[in-house]
Design a protein around this nucleic acid. Structure first.
Lengths: 337, 337
DNA sequence: TTGAAAGCGCTAACAC
DNA sequence: GTGTTAGCGCTTTCAA
């Protein structure tokens, strides 16, 4: 009982007209008479005709799928971005082909190749932490596949990009900590060579400078996970001149700081303020709830897809590279005064 | 500088042989001579020949993509499942087309239609909470697209399925609570009509019965999120005969219970034990760390994909429906004695 | 307003 | 061992 999908030919035969007329009717071509059209449409509907996208793509040499390369799905920010991407793509009937690299360079290269082979119409990508060579991305461009980076861009490649305003996000968060009376703000940053990391640290430093507070290297460390945060927080609080506030580059780390500080008998936020970054769901689950910087992942995804679609639809001259910056927002909760 | 991708024809022309010979060489057909083969392969490699999967699919009427329909990506369990699916698919060179329904019936229907249109080779699905009609899934089957359900199955449709052993997972967790001295175990369950919910409650009840402890309806409530948990925990602890342990159907809820209990001055686990379900990353972040039931999402995904691939490869007689049950594992941490 | 025919890139039955 | 040919389902030029 294998039901072969009905084709244009079948409709043509059944209606005793030619395949081309059927094709045109389906495409609502102006040359076709009303009657013929409605006849075809009726038959198509009744028999659940579904155009074979493979054939169309092969013929027209363009297909309705977009490749998305992202470092990790089990990650709040990226899953949120994905939602934005999906919604925006759906508006124009594009499908999404997701490849996730789990932060591995090798997987990223394979993903890019897969996109090339799948002949996707465009690619959205956020680079893996371990990536240092960018040939695989360059190859996409060389093959005329439009590429837009989001969040983790790569400098070498000239394409549109959508980034989170990390600099201002961190800067205003740290500024807020200072405004609420903190004088020694520690910074727990991430080790990677990604541009993101630097921007964040610069945001931190500039916030201090703007408030005429000296940047103390002792308060700046590389620590971006829960386990390490427990250890480093204890160490930092035992300094002769300990911090009275902590800014962490992600929420897990911030929770680590929070938990350790509480365990050591500090009151939060009375003795110590803590601020995270991402605005994960754990912010609401921690006790007290965690102040954090929202990165508006949904907008990042939607915007990146928008740029890509504009490219694909030829609405943009290729000469200019667009950089969009998505604003962040400080979500004040109970770990800050 | 639009670089058209090189085709089989191009190779044939360049080497003055026929396209079919090229095709066969590329496919490593036994009839072709060593020399011809290596000649073709060398040329193909040098000019970066990439087979056009569209053409192949159109021709052979089977394409190398699998559709995955899942309720939510921003969700630990499902993202983990997705990893398993991806890895298993990659082994046989299949691509994944992900559609996520955000628990909406309407999106699920559209997703199924999209899969049909994309002519995927098979579909893996986990049904949305709001889904009550299953015609869209039936239609896939009617069109001979193999379908395998995972986690959230639907009873009406006869296909292979992979489920988590919720019953035993809950049962042994509750059993463990009792073994460690708890006598009144509360159950915070989920409201949905999914089979999963019932299985979990049955696991709870049977664990009590097996230990000759009466099932007290007062201790069984519907509550499956953090906010409600805060409220319901307070209420439950003020009962004349309050619980000395809580089992929650997900980790967020468990953390809610934990936080409220601590806030009310109870010691965990000395006064009260708490156990969650899923084994989220928050289990490690909570203070104390949360005991939870691991659902082995990766295995669920890998197994579902395995079943589907077997179907696609014709390794299975279609007559029999396979139900795989993935074992759970209790991860003991600090919220239980 | 409609039809005939070619062709997108690939595979495979059939020839030699 | 290799070539010829037809055709997957669709679009589109050209002709009628």
């Amino acid at each position: 009982m294998t039901k072969r999908q009905i084709t244009i030919k079948d409709i043509a035969k059944a209606l005793s007209i030619s395949p081309s007329t059927v094709s045109r009717s389906l495409a609502d071509h102006p040359d076709i008479s009303r009657e013929t059209k409605s006849l075809v449409l009726a038959y198509a509907k009744e028999h659940k005709y579904k155009p074979n996208p493979l054939a169309t793509s092969l013929r027209t040499n363009q297909n309705k799928t977009i490749g998305v390369i992202l470092p990790e799905v089990v990650h709040f920010f990226f899953s949120t971005v994905l939602s934005g991407i999906e919604d925006e793509a759906e508006k124009e009937g594009f499908r999404i082909l997701v490849s996730h690299t789990r932060e591995e360079y090798k997987k990223e290269v394979r993903a890019a190749q897969a996109m090339l082979e799948a002949r996707v119409s465009g690619v959205l990508a956020s680079v893996a932490k371990s990536t240092e060579k960018y040939d695989h991305f360059q190859e996409l461009i060389d093959n005329d596949i439009p590429l837009v980076f989001f969040d983790r861009i790569c400098r070498g490649i000239l394409t549109d990009r959508v980034v989170v305003d990390d600099y201002n996000g961190v800067c205003s968060a740290v500024n807020y900590l200072i405004e609420t009376g903190c004088r020694r703000v520690a910074f727990f940053g991430s080790p990677s060579q990604l541009a993101i990391s630097n921007n964040r640290r610069m945001g931190y430093e500039d916030a201090l400078i703007r408030n005429r507070i000296a940047v103390d290297p002792e308060l700046i460390i590389i620590c971006d996970n829960y386990g390490d945060a427990l250890e480093m927080t204890a160490r930092m609080l035992s300094l002769p001149n300990p911090p009275d506030a902590f800014f962490a580059v992600n929420d897990e780390t911030a929770v680590g700081i929070l938990n350790k500080a509480k365990a050591l008998g500090y009151r939060v936020p009375e003795d110590i303020s803590v601020c995270g970054f991402t605005n994960n769901s754990i912010c609401e689950l921690s006790e007290p709830t965690l102040t954090s910087v929202d990165q508006h992942g949904y907008e990042v995804g939607a915007m990146a897809m928008r740029l890509l679609l504009d490219h694909i639809n030829g609405k943009r001259e290729d000469c200019k590279v667009v950089s969009k910056i998505i604003k962040t927002k400080l979500i004040r909760r109970q770990t800050t005064r």
